[in-house]
């Protein structure tokens, strides 16, 4: 069973109730009760196969849970399709970069921005003449320092920038809660901090709540308000970065004695 959070910072933005997903014999997520407060940056850590990504996939409804329910602002959203969740402000990025590779970086952004503005269903208006969409897209690219690559195909830009664009697309949707699945995976060590700084800046500036799954412990302890450690599909420990750092059990299982 998961551990209930003691720290009640703000309103509960997300709650899960007995969330469960087994893949055959593997208990990927085993009755997880999770609470996320508005405005916090929560990190989920754990060894490979501990169920972190599966948990994100369940919350974002990429896969269906075997049992359990998900509440977003108190509403049961367990069966909502991802597009509807995105419209409500629950968005996610992907561990393996997930972009529109054949479209330019700008068009990637414009696809997300038109979606946010609810204009994708317009069949006869000119996209190029929609100044608001183009301006918003360019502003977002500037915020994430991608504007110099606006005309390049998303499939052709360097990996670090692809990773940032993947996260930037989430911000185009003006999210309330953002789920980030290893935002710095595959990024070179020297680039990790600058990439994470760009993301943290955007999160704090936008007052967005973030749930981050991350492998890199330096990053986790540096940017999180609260940390949850997972092991074999269950929540092992939960608390402030300092508490997690000092937790013997977590050190043994997760951080390998960091």
């Amino acid at each position: 069973m998961g551990i209930q959070s003691d720290a009640k910072i703000g309103e509960k933005i997300l709650q899960t109730e007995g969330l469960k997903k087994y893949f055959g014999e593997v208990r990927a997520v085993d009755h997880v009760d999770l609470e996320v407060s508005e405005g916090e940056i929560l990190s989920i850590i754990g060894p490979n196969g501990s169920g972190k990504t599966t948990l994100l996939n369940l919350i974002s409804n990429m896969i269906e849970p075997d049992a359990g329910r998900i509440f977003f602002y108190g509403r049961d959203v367990t069966k909502w399709p991802p597009s509807r969740l995105a419209k409500m402000g629950l968005v996610r990025s992907f561990q393996i970069v997930n972009l529109f590779d054949g479209l330019s970086v700008l068009d990637n952004m414009r696809a997300a921005v038109t979606s946010k503005l609810g204009r994708t269903s317009k069949p006869f208006t000119s996209l190029d003449r929609d100044k608001e969409v183009t301006r918003t897209s360019i502003e977002l690219l500037e915020l994430f320092k991608l504007s110099d690559k606006a005309e390049t195909l998303a499939g052709d830009v360097p990996h670090g920038d692809r990773k940032v664009l993947d996260v930037a697309l989430c911000f185009a949707l003006n999210p309330k809660l953002i789920l980030l699945d290893e935002p710095t995976s595959g990024v070179s060590t020297s680039e990790k901090r600058p990439v994470m700084q760009r993301i943290e800046e955007a999160v704090r500036k936008g007052g967005v709540t973030a749930v981050i799954v991350e492998h890199d412990m330096d990053i986790v302890f540096g940017y999180s308000d609260r940390i949850i450690a997972m092991h074999e599909g269950k929540i092992l420990a939960e608390g402030k970065p300092q508490e997690i750092r000092e937790n013997e059990e977590v050190r043994k299982v997760v951080t390998g004695g960091l």
Binding site: P81, S83, F100, G102, A111, R119, T120, S121, L127, L169
Partner: peptide, 22 residues
């Protein structure tokens, strides 16, 4: 049109398209 772009987005990556709200 914006619809044209949304369709291209679906062609390129339908999973991501769904997750950006299309």
């Amino acid at each position: 049109s914006p619809l044209g772009l949304a369709l291209k987005a679906i062609r390129e990556n339908s999973v991501r398209a769904e997750f950006v709200g299309i």
